[in-house]
């Protein structure tokens, strides 16, 4: 009986905001502690203890070399994502609003999208050689599809009342695009970007693994090749933190922008 009420209490607690926070913090602490304790006695060279990995991470990634590698990665990542967002939104808006263009290009787009983005690495290498442009090109090429398709879907399905009232007020052309279309499509654009962010990280790391002389991907492959297992692990850790931070910051930006696009959300 007492266990039953305890479970019921726990169930109820897990549904409140505060309860979730406490349970979650507990869970995260347990996970880190488990990793710490299990790996402490580790004599497996491939799985060093967390303590040593953290020491190494602090040592390497705070040196100018380490910081430069992180910055190089971030630069190409933001460059590629920026290009993908601009091009994806513009092309998506065109395709979503002009049925004739959509019908003409959709099989071609369908095909281009189906090509796994990393299969284009050799192609990008051939075009740009080993360079930052190659990485940016690759990230943009891979990330444009979810943004483009989601934007086009949104533009096609725009609320008929909305576009009709805009027309009644003679809001057309650029004004229509920026003040009516863009805010209406924004939620869909944001969904596309949310899908594109993990993809951009994958493409960033992969493109750095194939010969670029800097960046996080380069450091971890280099470390693996020279058996610096600690540096490799610390790089993986940094990439994990980077991925987490990116998605977290993006979710904040997303919420902010959604509120701007549709203030009615606040009332809910």
């Amino acid at each position: 009986m007492s266990t039953l009420t305890a479970t019921a209490k726990l169930n109820a607690a897990a549904k409140t905001r505060k309860g979730r926070l406490i349970l979650g913090t507990l869970g995260a602490a347990t996970a880190v502690a488990a990793w710490f304790l299990i790996s402490r006695e580790s004599d497996n060279p491939y799985f060093p203890s967390l303590e040593v990995i953290l020491e190494r991470a602090w040592e390497y990634w705070t040196t100018p070399e380490g910081v430069n590698n992180i910055l190089a990665s971030l630069r190409t990542l933001s460059g590629g994502l920026f290009l993908a967002i601009i091009l994806g939104v513009v092309i998506g808006l065109i395709i979503g609003q002009l049925a004739i263009v959509e019908q003409a290009v959709s099989p071609t787009l369908e095909f281009a999208r189906a090509i796994p983005a990393t299969a284009l690495i050799p192609f990008a290498l051939m075009l740009f050689g080993v360079s930052d442009q190659m990485k940016i090109f690759l990230i943009a090429l891979g990330c444009i599809w979810p943004i483009l398709l989601s934007t086009a879907d949104g533009a096609r399905g725009i609320d008929k009342t909305l576009s009709a009232s805009a027309r009644a007020f003679q809001i057309t052309g650029w004004k229509f695009q920026t003040y009516v279309m863009l805010p209406a499509v924004l939620p869909r654009i944001l969904v596309g970007i949310r899908i594109a962010i993990p993809l951009s990280l994958i493409l960033m790391v992969t493109s750095e693994m194939v010969g670029v002389q800097q960046g996080l991907g380069f450091v971890i492959t280099q470390a693996q090749a020279t058996f610096q297992i600690l540096t490799m692990w610390s790089g993986i850790l940094i990439l994990g933190v980077l991925g987490f931070l990116l998605t977290f910051i993006y979710s904040l930006i997303e919420r902010r922008l959604l509120r701007w696009a549709d203030p009615r959300r606040d009332r809910e």
């Binding site: 169930n11 549904k15 349970l23 979650g24 913090t25 990280l201 996080l216 492959t221 987490f244």
Partner: peptide, 30 residues
């Protein structure tokens, strides 16, 4: 099991965005 999910959620949220290609060097070794 809601409490279990609440317990594991932050760990999942941390592991989820780890770009899996970052694990390539580790996977090659192990």
């Amino acid at each position: 099991i809601v409490p279990l999910e609440a317990f594991l959620r932050p760990t999942i949220e941390f592991l989820r965005p780890v770009p899996s290609v970052a694990l390539i060097p580790l996977v090659v070794l192990t």
